[in-house]
């Protein structure tokens, strides 16, 4: 498999506080990769560093062979990395359809269009002229995903897309993942729900305290390994 994204020894800081310590992650073309880990493990920081929202100058982030570290957010977006941010962050004064259209600002060639987004999220058709923020949490999440897809990204980053949603709604949203993969888009999801992540991903990385503590294919990982990587070795017995 060709490598799409590769970080080598990635670090991140919030002022003096170091949030990432030498993170190496690769995502292959067409692959779905999940980052799991508890709150504050560094998963979201990793995404923020990738998308240019945190300074990354001088680091090594290879995307399609180019080092994108230190690029401005809009340039990274244009290169083909789109983000579904935590908490959806829809534009409050735009309608559903306008929110989707703004996603096409730095549009690249590809299969995604308004029609295609409505195809995978038919719930949105009836709501397309409503303000984005007048929707249910699940529907807002669909708009946020659709908005990111509208730019025809090569890599879709999803930050905690199941957070605060009912299980039924989470299931609906994750049902779209195979449809998104069909278009050739690679997906990197950050997920606290380990079961959900294991079900959808080709490979998972487990984060703890700013480091990758475990990685591999879901089928190859045991519950014990995951618990140890997720909670730390000291709590291994307790978690299992």
């Amino acid at each position: 498999m060709t490598t799409l994204l590769e970080t080598r020894n990635l670090t991140a800081f919030y002022g003096d506080f170091q949030a990432l310590f030498g993170v190496d992650i690769t995502v292959g073309q067409g692959e779905t990769v999940a980052l799991i880990g508890s709150n504050g493990a560094g998963k979201s920081t990793f995404l923020r560093t990738l998308t240019g929202l945190l300074p990354a100058k001088g680091q090594d982030i290879r995307f399609e062979g180019q080092n994108i570290a230190g690029w401005a957010a809009d340039r990274i977006h244009k290169a083909g990395i789109a983000m579904v941010p935590e908490g959806r962050r829809l534009f409050a004064s735009l309608t559903v359809e306008e929110n989707l259209l703004i996603g096409a600002s730095g549009k690249r060639a590809g299969p995604w269009s308004l029609e295609k987004v409505y195809e995978i999220f038919p719930d949105l058709i009836a709501k397309k002229n409503n303000p984005g923020t007048a929707l249910s949490g699940g529907q807002q999440q669909m708009v946020a995903i659709g908005r990111a897809l509208m730019s025809n990204p090569t890599l879709l980053l999803c930050d905690e897309i199941s957070l605060g949603l009912a299980p039924k709604v989470i299931k609906d949203i994750y049902e779209a993942v195979p449809l998104i993969r069909e278009g050739g888009t690679s997906i990197l999801v950050v997920e606290q729900d380990v079961g959900q992540a294991m079900a959808v991903a080709d490979r998972v990385y487990c984060f703890m305290e700013g480091r990758v503590t475990l990685s591999g294919k879901p089928a190859d990982l045991t519950k014990h390994q995951i618990a140890a990587a997720y909670f730390g070795a000291k709590n291994e017995g307790e978690a299992a």
Partner: peptide, 21 residues
Amino acid sequence: GLALTAIRDSEPAAEAMGVVT
């Protein structure tokens, strides 16, 4: 107009959506 309204609502979010603010 879309870009202007998006920037009005949230500038960082607009930037992350590829709007060259």
